[in-house]
Write a protein that binds this DNA or RNA. Structure first.
Lengths: 297, 297
DNA sequence: GTTATTAATTGTTAAAATCGATTGATGTAT
DNA sequence: ATACATCAATCGATTTTAACAATTAATAAC
């Protein structure tokens, strides 16, 4: 079964509309002989006469008319395909599905979403908040295009670009003995009163490695930084918060005091990651650059 | 501006659906390398990445998905085109636009329409009644596909096939002196009482040539055989009628008597004519054969 | 009769499509 | 770890196709 070609249909349509091989050929930017034989080819492959030719006029057969009508549709869709692809060529005009981990999302997004929209008006961001491991899986399956993670994190086979760095602070209840220090060192931390996020949050792992690895036995596992902060405010213990969170209304809490950590200051790096093969790889670099710029400013 | 080819779109659709170059190639009956390069060709001509390839999986980009969707439509229309043309290949399945002259139509059509429909159930006949000259013009312009005319008539450049022959009879009022003869000869005809159809009807010309050419001065010009017969019934004169009309209810008229003409019997031939270039030329022969068969029976 | 117009035809060349075989990268099983 | 299997890209060779320029045959117009 031989499918017609778009070119054949294009030629047929031109002849049906102009009723003239020569003019049709001109419109299609080919010679009359090229057009003529292309249409003959179409006729024999379909096994049907599409045009009645006399030396003086060209008359489409009913079948020829019907097929020309279908050809019109096909041509229209073809132009539509070209339109579709040329639209998608502008940088950051596609929908970008971005995953962000829960300990970054609430602090970073309010800060960057508006400026991002101003910088790339055609960009449509779809946000997904999930833990690092889940985001990795969704990234690999193509469900999302990129993710903002906290490093260190194993990101083999992903392209990765840093967008910023932030140190950890210690949050403690108002009047806690620790508040007497301007800077807290790892040794000062009361392991027995340390509050951590539940399993799966990378902030938990980063905090644990700051305090000396698996020795830590966290007393309580909060499911979000919000709950954790509330616990601290009620005097249940102390915890780590990322620097970005300091500006959050959450930490304007009257009953919480914050102290930086001593040198070497523990910190985490934030990075945008994506599949190295991603069709958006060029856009990803642009996006990461913009994010880095917004983090500094 | 380069249009995609249907083949490229077909290959793309296969890959998007199967997520596998090898299987897609198999489905399309080509080698993997053929399919692979065809899709690369499509991508570069559109200037857009349509697929993300890793060694282990193939992931369509959003643009790739959209274009595959359009490809699906185009493929569907293409198959439709093939369907359209193969449908039109059955003999006499198209619409056939048939012109018939007014002195044949009312006598022939009642006789043949039903049997024709039984013989070619898929045939859709569109009937047009008009004078020979008009039919010729409409035939040439492609407005109709074929016509039933009475010969002799100049039919240059048209294909032509006889479907029957009929002699002329003379219709006269009941009790007319002429009724005493069993057969009428041309010389017997009362020229001053001869009623003819108006200009343009070929029956008029045939009648005139029977009576000796342009010598005839017809007293009255009827616009249809029906009026003419009524005139005869009212004793206004005599006229010619074609043999086929004898069976018509029109001539069961009580006040009309009919007589055949003497040897050499004047007659007319009926023929189906069509453009020699007509896409229906094969069908026309079939149709003419059938008509001839029905005329005899 | 001559000329102009038109589509088909012919012969040639350039472009492309396709294939088979190979490569390089990547998982999977032992 | 190592060998094996899988997969898409790549390469080189061959066939097929598309396109053109020039010509021909048929027709209409003058």
């Amino acid at each position: 079964m031989y499918l017609p070609t778009i070119k054949q249909l294009q030629y047929l349509l031109a002849v049906v509309e102009l009723r003239h091989f020569g003019q049709a050929a001109e419109r299609c930017f080919v010679t009359q002989s090229t057009l003529s034989s292309a249409i003959q080819e179409l006729e024999t492959s379909l096994g049907v006469q599409l045009l009645e030719r006399t030396k003086r006029k060209v008359l489409p057969t009913p079948t020829g008319l019907e097929i020309a009508e279908q050809a019109r549709k096909i041509l229209k869709i073809s132009y539509n395909i070209i339109e579709l692809s040329s639209n998608s060529k502008n940088p950051l005009c596609n929908e970008v599905r971005l995953g962000v981990i829960p300990t970054i999302a609430p602090f970073l997004l309010p800060k960057v979403l508006l400026p991002l929209h101003q910088a790339f008006p055609a960009l449509s961001l779809l946000l997904i908040e999930d833990q690092s491991a889940h985001l990795m899986r969704r990234l690999e399956s193509g469900e999302i295009d990129c993710a903002i993670l906290a490093l260190p994190y194993p990101t083999e086979k992903l392209a990765c670009q840093l967008i910023g760095e932030e140190s950890f602070w210690v949050a403690m209840p108002e009047g806690d003995p620790l508040t007497k220090k301007r800077k807290i060192s790892a040794a000062d931390l009361p392991m027995e009163r340390l509050l951590l996020l539940e399993e799966g949050h990378c902030l938990r792992d980063h905090a644990m490695s700051t305090c000396g690895g698996s020795e830590v036995k966290a007393q309580f596992q909060g499911s979000s930084l919000y709950t954790l902060i509330e616990m601290v405010a009620w005097g249940q213990g102390v915890t780590f918060v990322p620097a970005m969170a300091l500006e959050s209304p959450l930490l304007k809490h009257a009953r919480i005091e914050l102290r930086p950590l001593d040198e070497p200051t523990p910190h985490r790096q934030m990075a945008l990651v994506w599949r190295a093969t991603s069709y958006q790889k060029n856009n990803m670099v642009i996006l990461a650059d913009k994010l880095a710029e917004l983090m500094v400013g």
